[in-house]
């Protein structure tokens, strides 16, 4: 294999961290800033009712979300989102591990799981509303039910494809089932699991908004729909901006966690590329 050479290899250390960070930040925000400027100029030259200028939206953002609405709408939404993500990831990994390791269970459940995954989750909202009413529970369950599948199915796939030599190694050293689970099966599946978690996060955010758009009287999704129905266009856009920011924040947190959990995996990739 060309992968290995005779000495200890470490990922290349690039010099001048600050300059690199500075330039990457410049790259990252360059295009958005440019777009905002164009949008702002366009908005002043040719005002359009449904596309207010960025400054108007920024004003609306401050007025709408920084204040009591943050406590009554944003925080409860985020709390439900967080609870649902934790539940979806925990249930997904636990059930996925069980299903992935038990052959008969897998064969029994696979068609069913594929069917559940194929159901567009929003259509289940009326069902859950009928069962549970318009409650926090209902919303959390809707988010969990919609976002569970990527992490669950990826865990099943990751767990069942544990390398045969690694498994034989564990067997030959008589590792206990618990040790095997935590030292072999889950770490080996972790790249797949994390890929599933990434999808779960974005689906969860979508489901959070949708769960609040119908039958609801508070929350981010409700507010955006409410503003739209009442022609509060700038406020509506500010809600959309806030949702986008929450999405970015989720992605950043995920990347930090993923880099830590999969450090070995990225290390291998880097050695392979070098």
């Amino acid at each position: 294999m060309t992968l290995y050479t005779s000495t200890v290899r470490r990922p290349p250390q690039r010099p001048n961290l600050w300059a690199r960070m500075g330039s990457s930040i410049l790259y990252a925000i360059g295009v958005p800033v440019l777009l905002l400027v164009i949008w702002g100029v366009w908005g002043t030259i040719a005002p359009a009712k449904f596309f207010p200028s960025p400054l108007t939206i920024a004003e609306a953002f401050v007025d709408t979300w920084i204040g009591p609405a943050f406590v009554t709408d944003v925080l409860p939404s985020l709390a439900r989102l967080a609870a649902a993500i934790v539940l979806a990831v925990v249930i997904g990994i636990a059930a996925g591990t069980l299903i992935g390791l038990t052959r008969w269970l897998r064969e029994l459940l696979e068609p069913l799981l594929e069917f559940f995954r194929a159901i567009p989750p929003p259509v289940l909202i009326p069902v859950f509303v009928a069962l549970l009413g318009v409650t926090d529970q209902m919303k959390v369950i809707v988010i969990v039910f919609g976002s569970l599948w990527p992490v669950l199915l990826n865990t099943v796939e990751g767990v069942r494809s544990t390398d045969s030599v690694m498994t034989e190694t564990a067997r030959s050293f008589a590792l206990t089932p618990t040790e095997r689970l935590f030292s072999l099966v889950l770490p080996a599946a972790s790249p797949r699991i994390m890929a599933g978690v990434r999808q779960t996060l974005s689906v969860a955010l979508i489901m959070m908004v949708i769960s609040e758009m119908f039958y609801s009287s508070s929350g981010l999704g409700f507010q955006v729909a409410y503003f739209q129905r009442n022609y509060l266009i700038a406020q509506m856009w500010s809600g959309i901006v806030l949702l986008g920011l929450i999405g970015v924040l989720l992605a950043v947190v995920f990347t930090i966690v993923e880099r830590r959990v999969l450090r070995w995996y990225h290390g291998i990739k880097e050695v392979e590329r070098a």
């Binding site: 030599v165 034989e168 190694t169 030959s172 050293f173 030292s183 070995w264």
Partner: peptide, 28 residues
Amino acid sequence: MALVFQEYGRSLYPWLTVRGNVELPLKH
């Protein structure tokens, strides 16, 4: 009894350090 496999790359666990790999079977 201990085994050493031909496929060293698939017998060591890449998420553990060298020390972690050597220590793993001793844990129980």
